[in-house]
Simulated scan of single mutants.
Amino acid sequence: MNGSIIDAHLHLDLYSEVERKILLQDLKKYEIEALISVSNNLSSAKKNVELAQIDQRVYAAFGFHPEQALPSEIEIDQLLSFIKNNTNNMIAIGEVGLPYYLRREKPEIPIEPYLEMLEVFIQLTANLNKPVILHAVYEDAPVVCELLEKYSIKKAHFHWFKGSSVSVQHLMQNGYYISLTPDCLYKPSIQQMIKEYPLTNMMVETDGPWPFEGPFKGRMTHPKMIRHSIAKIAELKRIDLKDAYQELYRNTKEFYQL
């Protein structure tokens, strides 16, 4: 192996108990130093706190995943209270953003309530001085960038980012970070973005337990897959594999202050 790795974005709480046990037992074997486990809602956040307390290699982020129905006012208030009361147990706000895929399935869904909720999370990010982990792809990215700029947010992590060249340039100009998943092995659009985006603002992730295609089809998503991603990034960037490992590892450590 060429160095330690960090999974910058996964949903550890969504794995089954058996899968999670296997994954955590494998961390040392595959030199996986840390996992950034994001939350979908309040119950997810509570589970991630529990997992982080059991295993110090797990770092919890708290948020509300946008690709689901909006929470009630009571639910969002409870989540916000939980976040404020557990700031010391939180590595970042996340996962938050806008419901791109949900709106493709149901175009009648209004975007305004999601924008309002996202602004609350971004404002909280500014108040707590924490990084924010974003689900904002394609045409949603410029809208989210405007909100980040409104609150002078610098530490923004666009996970599994996909978007136009214009959006990519916007993220680059603002110094935002993106993270790549194992789909970089078989998605030409992602490979092109890797060539364009500065390595200094990249991280690697799995978004597990989300499944992948190509060489990973039918396999449980595991942080060890990141090693294949790093090899592909090194190839596309035309740099030494060891240098790619070191840069991606350093980026994640510094961004999340691990």
Rank of each mutant, 00 (worst) to 15 (best):
P107M: 10
I109F: 14
E254R: 11
H157P: 08
L80T: 06
Y245S: 02
M202L: 12
I233D: 01
H157R: 10
P66T: 00
V58M: 07
I226V: 09
E33G: 07
E19L: 05
M117Y: 04
K195G: 01
K154P: 04
V49W: 11
L12H: 09
A141R: 03
P223N: 08
Y114E: 00
P66L: 03
S229I: 05
Y249Q: 03
H159M: 07
Q246W: 08
V166E: 15
A126C: 09
I226C: 06
V204C: 08
N41G: 02
A69T: 12
S229F: 06
K46M: 12
T252K: 10
A52W: 06
E19Q: 15
P215E: 08
E247N: 08
K187T: 10
G3D: 05
S37K: 11
F216R: 03
Q173P: 01
S39L: 10
A156N: 03
L70K: 03
S81A: 11
H228Y: 15
T87A: 13
K106I: 14
Q169C: 07
N2G: 10
P198E: 11
H159S: 04
G63E: 06
D240Y: 07
L199T: 01
V166H: 14
I83Y: 09
Q169G: 09
Q123R: 14
Q25H: 15
L14G: 02
G63S: 08
M1K: 13
L258V: 10
I83L: 07
N88V: 06
A92C: 05
I76G: 00
L79W: 09
P209R: 10
W160T: 02
Y30P: 01
G163Q: 04
A52P: 01
K46V: 04
L236V: 08
K21E: 15
L35W: 09
E196H: 11
L236S: 06
I190D: 02
E213V: 05
K28Y: 07
A69I: 11
N129L: 07
P107A: 07
T252F: 14
K232V: 02
S229Y: 07
I178K: 06
L199M: 09
I54T: 13
Q25T: 13
N174I: 01
I109D: 08
L35C: 12
P110F: 13
Y59D: 00
R238Q: 14
P188S: 04
P71F: 06
